[in-house]
Design a protein around this nucleic acid. Sequence first.
DNA 1: TTAAAATATGACTGAGCGGTCATGCACGGC
DNA 2: GCCGTGCATGACCGCTCAGTCATATTTTAA
Lengths: 227, 227
Amino acid sequence: MPKKTYFNLPEAKRQIIEAVAIDEFAAVPFASASISAIVARAGIAKGSFYQYFEDKKDLYLHLLDLSMKQKVALVSQFKPSERALDMFDYLRWMLQVSVLFEMRYPKLAKIAYRALVEDVPFADEAEKLAHRGGMFYFNDFLAQGILHDDVATWVDTDMAAFLLGAVYNQFGRYLLKRTSLSIEDFADGKLDIFKDQVVQDLFDNLMDIIMAGIARDPEIRNHYFNK
Amino acid sequence: MPKKTYFNLPEAKRQIIEAVAIDEFAAVPFASASISAIVARAGIAKGSFYQYFEDKKDLYLHLLDLSMKQKVALVSQFKPSERALDMFDYLRWMLQVSVLFEMRYPKLAKIAYRALVEDVPFADEAEKLAHRGGMFYFNDFLAQGILHDDVATWVDTDMAAFLLGAVYNQFGRYLLKRTSLSIEDFADGKLDIFKDQVVQDLFDNLMDIIMAGIARDPEIRNHYFNK
DNA sequence: TTAAAATATGACTGAGCGGTCATGCACGGC
DNA sequence: GCCGTGCATGACCGCTCAGTCATATTTTAA
């Protein structure tokens, strides 16, 4: 946790520091991120930095925390309107929000991604933070799906949760490669992932594969077979 | 490419250097890997190292190359016996070999993994190397599957290839977490991933989900539905 | 006005890094 | 015996880094 002094700072100053730090930690791995570079770009003295944060790791975990909070905020902002959607619509919604986060806050997303795939000298703390904001408890979710006859009983829910996690985590990157779009295209609202047809078609196809793979209802299977 | 001098070295000396270097680059990200540490542990002089390799990147790419060669070797060693398997058996075999590589050569696997997910200052070269040995051209493979009526025509093969890649790449790590087994359990042959029932069951379930998701044959779908 | 508390500062430390280079040694051909 | 080539060596260079600290400045409270 940053020191008390940091939170006494004027909002604007904190904003600058955080923006610069997010830039740095999104651009390079933890070990390569430079505090010296950050303080220089943020226009503060090295000594000041250490009045705000315990050390490099303290800043890093703070950013990771910010990232997760932002994701959670986005999730609740786009929560499906009223009552529970159908399970597959829910899975689809999760996928979309997950991608949306990556497009809206690419740097924060990258920092969270790093925490999971890269080695930091404090992997456990980082992973705990990253997972807390992970928000998608696929496992419980799928187990519920079996109880409600949405998911085929033979499906190993823990395994299926792993599959969903792996796919959802990478889908944003794939989308960019596949469509040759860049994050900027999405960023300035010129392109709404919820509306763009090409993107929606890809979402559809992915969800189709997953649904056909785990759904219980024979009509769903037949629907895909008859396509 | 390492310099000529390196290849003139006695086999044993090269082995030591490579073993130590693999250790280092598997343990920490590229930027943190220390040449000084490697030469110290390998018992050679710093100057000697730079008679063998151009620079740090040269060594790293060499290791990446070794990793890919080892994977390809493992693949051909375990090539399905005689003639072509059924497409799904083939996908299953790919998954198993992919996991086997991770268990047999965890450090080499880690180095390859890093090349794909971490940022090195020469990402393009690294990715090219890693992909060349990636060996699994799911995309063409699935396209063939459609031609042969193995894969449902509505499946976006490029997308499905992404899904397979994402899942296959992570499955080894999942397997370890899920089964609470460690790499050592597999390493010394005490446990054969091709024979162990728990592991095979997980393979089965994953393949079931994928097959049910992309197969064309209605019997396959019904088979899963009737489970 | 003043004293105390909080905050800002940047030169400095000690360590580690990748990479270089002058020097020395070993060995094969003549 | 001599020389040339290839290899081995480790002190050394220039740089960057995270983190410290004595000092200066500003803010607060009385």
